[in-house]
């Protein structure tokens, strides 16, 4: 019970506030040559401040599309979606979120430090402020001392950490991550998952995280959203009873295995609808 209270007490201070991200009956239909594709159908979800929400499901279930809707990179065809009580596009203009893509997407002609500076330059921070924030962001992802290196001099995992630092540098409250570790091997992934949890604990950001991996979703999240395809919809939302402090070997605990089982069941149920 104690486990479950910690996220709640965290939101107690902001009890009067509405959810950071609120979706009601969201629909998104793409018109393609093969007819309409229902990427999202009737998606409703609240994400509170400080939540770590994972979206899991097979390809085509709309998890990335939903994340892109929050980021105003896609526009829903029906329903309501608010981010920080604004429309997603207003939130984007207010730089409410940092977005991490599956590929690091660092500019090869910029050093790591200059890459992290990119959003700061665009947003018009002063030179001194830029330098300070770059140092801070590098430290958050444990890349201090690598600022002068070029992307090709870093491993894939380090590049992805640099791209996370870039998303953190302007200190948006929301961090949206679209399969950020999908292209990395298991060991690097475990390490980055651990680091991400520490980073989340330190920064208290609200994180939306898209993944294919059940253990990753269960290990990281306070809330797991299970989705299924055709049409893309939410089939289960699981509030995790796991404590905030999570060593890697928590993955062998009965609670962990139980949640993983429920996620797997949810994914299977989604498939039976086909």
């Amino acid at each position: 019970m104690n486990m479950q209270t910690s996220p709640e007490t965290a939101s107690d201070g902001t009890a009067s506030m509405s959810p950071v991200i609120a979706a009601r009956d969201l629909d998104l239909t793409f018109q393609t040559n093969d007819g309409p594709v229902h990427a999202l159908k009737g998606v409703s979800l609240d994400i509170n401040k400080g939540d770590f929400v994972s979206f899991i499901g097979p390809s085509g279930c709309g998890k990335t599309t939903f994340l892109r809707c929050i980021a105003a990179l896609e526009t829903p065809t029906a329903g309501q979606l608010t981010v920080n009580n604004m429309s997603p596009d207003e939130a984007r203009r207010n730089r409410a979120y940092g977005y991490v893509f599956q590929a690091a997407g660092l500019y090869p002609w910029r050093t790591i430090a200059k890459n992290i500076k990119l959003p700061l330059e665009i947003m018009g921070y002063s030179k001194a402020e830029q330098d300070r924030r770059v140092e801070e962001a590098l430290e958050l992802v444990e890349l201090s001392g690598f600022g002068g290196k070029f992307p090709w001099q870093l491993s894939g995992g380090m590049q992805q950490r640099a791209s996370i630092a870039r998303a953190l540098s302007f200190d948006a409250d929301i961090l949206l991550m679209d399969e950020p570790f999908g292209a990395l091997d298991e060991i690097v992934r475990d390490h980055l998952n651990e680091q991400l949890l520490q980073l989340w604990a330190r920064t208290e950001k609200t994180i939306g995280f898209v993944t294919h991996s059940i253990p990753e979703a269960v290990y990281l999240s306070t809330k797991i959203v299970v989705m299924s395809p055709r049409p893309g919809r939410i089939t289960d939302v699981i509030d995790s009873p796991l404590p905030k402090e999570r060593p890697l070997d928590i993955r062998d605990s009965p609670e962990f295995i139980e949640i993983a089982h429920r996620v797997r069941e949810g994914l299977r149920a989604g498939h039976e609808h086909d």
Partner: peptide, 12 residues
């Protein structure tokens, strides 16, 4: 597309 989306998220 990803590079252009990234700039869009910065409202560049």
């Amino acid at each position: 597309g990803m590079q252009l989306d990234l700039l869009r998220t910065y409202h560049a």
